[in-house]
Design a protein around this nucleic acid. Structure first.
Lengths: 225, 225, 225, 225
DNA sequence: GATGAATGAGGCTTCATTCAT
DNA sequence: TATGAATGAAGCCTCATTCAT
């Protein structure tokens, strides 16, 4: 809980390599967000210090405030960006023309792969964002809704009337929530058992939610085509 | 009528009911833990202020420190107590002599009922404890291990050799993790859709994990005996 | 600076050997003062906690307050008692009929012996009392005056008119101060070089103040008769 | 508690000159150390409040922490700086080519002059540093060793073999300790008798340690060339 | 008389945020 | 524009002191 940054032992006043200046705003913002996600993931919202973010981003604190506002706003910006990336990642992997089980399978795989390759991003979304109380509730709700929608869509057939689909969509929601939660939880477990591959994890979850234990205990398994 | 206060006689600032005093240590500790769980659940570990806990508990801060130690230790005490309560709740509901599906069903129902009746407790365990970094890692590991063990036991048949069971126990772990995560997530969803009953939620999750989507989309459902 | 007394791990509520009661006031006061001197010497005035004093004294805090008043008054009482003991110790060792050097020699020896046998007492007087600012100034002044008087008397011949003696008494004061300081300092040094005896230390100081370096560098030494 | 600030440096009551800002780090550090020495000297380590130091220094507390670390570290920094100043003061006054008595005389005079002009500094070194227990033991040891070395050197002739000098150096230590203590003590006495000059005090101590009482009572005195 | 229980007050420390250059 | 310097506000924790039994 103690970080070893001691201002007294820091670099001498005349810094030899002056921080590069006059970068376009977009680049700066990305630098900042990258650093923020990293630091928020490492320490959690509260323990994360603006000082550390500014160091990691190699941008001075006043610039951070100028570009992205308060710490709270910065965190919201992180959540929003990372949520988009994840959603796009999964959306890009599925294909509306495939049968539901195939879609689900692809979605799951995309999810596990994303979590593996963007651990910090995922940590911020899953662990940090959900624990910081009211200030981020709105942002979180939005992200959850999108995630549920996506999963619900994956789970629903595309046929039937519009009304039919609407109803099914509603009914699917708790299942979708369960699926998302199961995925999150498996990723957590994965972190402590990294010897498994993303494929293996996806397969297990697929079996759980597609076949169910009832089938599994009798030896039936789901397999990709 | 007797209470009609004469506006002319100034009552003491606020304290109508003087804080009861000289309670035995045990009672005080429970008061404190109750308050702490509530406040930690509401704001998260870091945002929770010892001041607020002491106000909610109606006990001065020094007593909190005398009885339960630092904020960190207090949080650990909360986790430990609530974990015990939940585990006992579920353990008490299952019965080793029943078939696996029936056991699972009872366990799930117990879990959802507990979560419904002890929302703060559950929030602390699920949301807060897992996000506060190293200081609580040990306590968390312990609690997770117990939870996984419990679920794994529910999911495993009791027959076969000891070795068999050991192996199955290992293989079950990711499924158990998934199941726990699914449950957690459904509870979250439930909070925003409180019109459902604990029974209904349990049933849905049961269907998901026992029958699987593959069966569900064909209209097959699991039902209790 | 951290003491390991943790109230949570203390003796169970029903203490088997009840603290003995109804002792006469004098005994209690001595217990308290003994404990206080010990604790003050160990930690210094500020770090000394009334809790620890009460534990060491085996007397509850309210009794301490009843008998000796506030922490400040308790400290004053310590100073006063220990100053008396030391002064009496030295006074008892000298004999007005002896020649000055012999008197000085005896006084020094008495002092070093006292310091050796009552380290806590001496520490409180020398180290702690002088550093605690205004609150104890009066008590300290009194003790210093007495110490100076004693030493001045040792150093002055008893002959001459009363006026003569008064004058000499005045002139002696800075020397007396120097002598006391030299003694204090040698005791400090002694603590880290405990292989020396009280006699040896006394002899060295005696040589310093009686013969002076001027003589010593030429090999002249003072010796007791 | 109201600012007992030296009238010469007192700022005008109505802060017309807003706290000067943007000073370079070096200046700030000196300001802080000056204030800290003053406050530590006045109240002692424990009674000294960071709040008061920050007020006296006219710098906000966070800057103190940023530049000099915790209260403990700040105190150590004070000790170190003041010890250096004193040692340099005395070292600068002596001259290895002079005979021992002349050297001692110069050293004493330098010491008394320093003590007169830097009372706070001296108080911190002498009274406070030695009473604050373990945390400062290392720093104190270092400073004491240097002081003893310096005095021992003053007292030792430079002739003889290296081995001789080593032995004498050892034997001199208790005398050096005594001398330092005598000096400290005379300064204390001086504070209450400020009518004497530094020269007079030095002369008295010189007589005591060089001639000894044995000579003095017979009217022999030491005099500078 | 004796004490476990209780607290007001205050100290050290940190951090998000903003000047002034 | 970009940043080192600066601080208000707040949090955790401890301790001398006193009730109420």
């Amino acid at each position: 809980m103690q970080d070893a940054r001691d201002p007294r032992t820091e670099s001498p006043p005349n810094r030899s390599k002056p921080r590069s200046r006059r970068l376009p705003r977009e680049v700066r913002e990305r630098q900042i967000l990258d650093a923020a996600v990293q630091v928020f993931a490492r320490h959690g919202y509260h323990e994360a210090a603006m000082d550390e973010i500014s160091e990691v981003a190699e941008i001075s604190k006043p610039m951070i405030y100028a570009y992205l506002g308060s710490k709270e706003e910065l965190f919201v910006a992180c959540i929003r960006r990372e949520a988009n990336r994840l959603i796009e990642s999964i959306s890009g992997a599925v294909d509306a023309d495939l049968p539901p089980d195939e879609q689900l399978w692809r979605g799951l795989r995309a999810f596990f792969e994303y979590a593996q390759q963007n651990r910090a991003s995922w940590t911020v979304l899953h662990r940090q964002a959900s624990t910081q109380g009211p200030p981020f509730a709105a942002e979180l709700s939005a992200w959850r809704r999108r995630a549920l929608d996506l999963v619900t869509t994956l789970l629903s057939r595309a046929d039937g009337t519009e009304e039919d689909r609407q109803v099914r969509h509603e009914q699917m929601q708790p299942f979708a929530a369960a699926l998302v939660g199961a995925g999150e939880s498996m990723v957590d477990w994965w972190i402590e058992h990294p010897e498994h591959t993303a494929d293996a994890l996806s397969m297990r979850l697929m079996n759980l939610v597609w076949m169910g234990f009832g089938d599994m205990v009798q030896g039936r398994r789901w397999k990709p085509d």
